[in-house]
């Protein structure tokens, strides 16, 4: 046969009858989760060639730690995307939540701290701000049925403005110890933030893959009418997801605050592009209902490994940003090629 490549499968509606037609598709579906693993191995090899310290434990820990905070934003965004919405405001919550905690707990005299509450309250406040932002987002998106993109874009600006307002545009220092502990402590010789990040991703994998709640996120993102007909309380699931996402962003912000022992007014500024890119490269669809938490993790890991290789290769810091953007676009193009489907 001359034209075996003209596969009818490309029309999107093949009718697989026997097992012969169905097997490859099945295998493909499972492999999609691991689509980035070859790329990660390739980068590891390149990295090792560029600089022999790349694969040493210190460097790997360094990569994992620098990505641990933002990876929680990726986890949050992955959940929101799977349920069929998007949340741009995550990057502002990432700064505002620890910012408010610092504002209320840092003693008067240092920066714009109010010193109203003792350091003990720092973490509860951070989490509470996360919940509050999630509630406001959900109120607009779920309750009033507004478009998630435009609502969270508004929230992104409002929350960023709030942080600038309370901090007077300055950085909070002299944070209470409770705020810096998680971001700077070492557990079993590895930074606590890595443990926390890995733990939260593991929980994410478990919830999304193996609980009725997690599966309902896929159902809602895939076809909300069908999910309703199946008895899923779609509104409630959306509320919980949006709130959980904001809380994850707050925790991420807390970890970064701990590592840097400060909250800058611009904390998280501009992170959302990387977050979206990592999720999409990791196979999460912008149209909802598709992608996995594990995939999202490989997405952000790949981006940070590449960044690390660039630094090791001695690329000047001024150029890293431009290269980073270019790499993300390249990675998107590559994942389109390997994934075989158009990115939606």
């Amino acid at each position: 046969m001359p034209e075996t490549t003209a596969a009818p499968a490309e029309t999107g509606r093949p009718a697989p009858k026997g097992s012969a037609g169905s097997r490859p598709a099945l295998r493909l579906a499972r492999l999609r989760d691991f689509a980035l693993v070859p790329a990660i191995i390739a980068i590891a090899i390149v990295g090792q060639i560029v600089h022999p310290i790349f694969l040493q434990a210190d460097n790997i820990i360094n990569i994992l730690q620098t990505m641990s905070e933002i990876s929680l934003l990726v986890l949050a965004q992955a959940l929101v995307l799977i349920v069929g919405k998007m949340d741009l405001s995550l990057e502002s919550t990432f700064g505002l939540a620890p910012g408010v905690a610092a504002w209320l707990t840092v003693a008067v005299g240092t920066g714009s701290g109010l010193g109203l509450l003792s350091g003990f309250w720092a973490i509860p406040i951070t989490l509470a701000v996360g919940v509050l932002v999630g509630v406001v987002n959900a109120l607009f998106i779920v309750r009033f049925g507004l478009n998630g993109f435009i609502v969270t874009l508004g929230m992104l600006i409002v929350l960023r403005g709030l942080l600038t307002g309370i901090s007077g545009g300055q950085t909070f220092f002299n944070l209470p110890e409770s705020m810096t502990y998680l971001g700077s402590a070492m557990w079993f010789g590895v930074p606590a933030s890595i443990w926390i990040c890995l733990l939260l991703f593991a929980v994410g994998v478990l919830v999304m893959g193996f609980t009725g709640f997690g599966r309902s996120l896929y159902a809602i993102g895939g076809n909300v009418d069908a999910a309703k007909a199946a008895g899923i309380r779609t509104d409630r699931v959306l509320w919980i997801t949006l709130i959980a996402a904001s809380v994850l962003a707050a925790i991420g912000g807390l970890l970064l605050t701990g590592r840097l022992a400060s909250v800058a007014a611009a904390q998280g500024d501009g992170a959302i592009f990387t977050v979206f890119a990592a999720a999409v490269i990791g196979g999460v669809s912008l149209n909802g209902g598709k992608g996995t938490v594990f995939g999202a993790f490989t997405g952000i890991l790949l981006l940070y490994m590449i960044q690390n290789v660039l630094t090791l290769a001695g690329v000047p810091a001024q150029w890293i940003e431009a290269l980073n953007g270019a790499i993300i676009l390249t990675a998107l193009a590559l994942s389109r090629l390997t994934g075989g489907k158009t990115q939606e």
Partner: peptide, 10 residues
């Protein structure tokens, strides 16, 4: 239902 309630990605 007349309109499909199948979720394609699942």
């Amino acid at each position: 239902y007349q309109k499909s309630t199948i979720i394609p990605e699942l």
